[in-house]
Amino acid sequence: MNTIDEQLWDYIDGNLDAAQASIIKEKIDTDAEVKNQYEELLRFNLTFDKIELEEPSMSFTRNVMESVAIVPAPVAMKTQVDKKIIYSIGGFFIISLLALFGYVLYNSNLTMPGFDQKINFNFNLDKYITPTTVYSFLFADLVIGLIFLDRFLRDKIVQSKKI
Rank of each mutant, 00 (worst) to 15 (best):
P113Y: 13
Y106T: 04
N120P: 04
I89T: 05
L153Q: 10
Q7Y: 03
T61D: 14
F44S: 09
L46A: 12
T47Q: 06
G145R: 02
I129Y: 00
L138I: 03
S88E: 14
T30Q: 15
Y38P: 05
L125A: 02
G14H: 03
A140N: 04
Y135T: 00
I85D: 03
F152H: 05
K161F: 11
D10F: 01
D150R: 14
K161P: 02
D82F: 13
W9H: 06
I157Q: 03
I23V: 14
F44I: 09
D155L: 10
D29S: 14
M58G: 12
K35Y: 07
K118E: 12
T130C: 02
S22R: 09
F48V: 09
P56S: 04
I12R: 03
L53W: 01
V143E: 01
F152N: 03
R154W: 05
A140C: 05
S22F: 08
D116R: 15
P72K: 14
Y87H: 14
G114I: 08
S108H: 08
T3L: 15
L149K: 05
K78M: 10
A18P: 06
V134S: 00
N36T: 08
V81Q: 04
M1T: 07
V81W: 05
F123S: 01
S108N: 12
L142P: 00
Q159F: 14
T3D: 15
A99G: 05
L149F: 13
D49V: 10
Y87T: 07
F148E: 08
K162A: 13
R62Y: 15
I147K: 08
K161M: 11
N2Y: 01
N107R: 07
F93M: 13
G145E: 03
P72M: 10
N45V: 06
S96G: 13
I28F: 09
I119R: 15
L42C: 06
T3V: 12
I12D: 08
L98Q: 09
K118Q: 15
D126F: 02
L105W: 07
L149V: 11
I86Y: 07
F48W: 03
F148R: 03
N63H: 15
I144A: 11
L42M: 08
V81C: 06
N122I: 09
D82S: 12
I24P: 07
K161D: 02
T61N: 14
A18Q: 14
F92V: 01
N2M: 06
F48L: 13
E66F: 15
A21Q: 07
Q20W: 02
F101I: 13
I129E: 00
L149Q: 05
M65L: 15
A32I: 07
D155I: 10
R43L: 10
A21E: 13
L146E: 06
Y135R: 01
D155N: 12
L149P: 01
S57D: 10
L41Y: 02
L98I: 13
Q37Y: 00
W9D: 11
T132P: 00
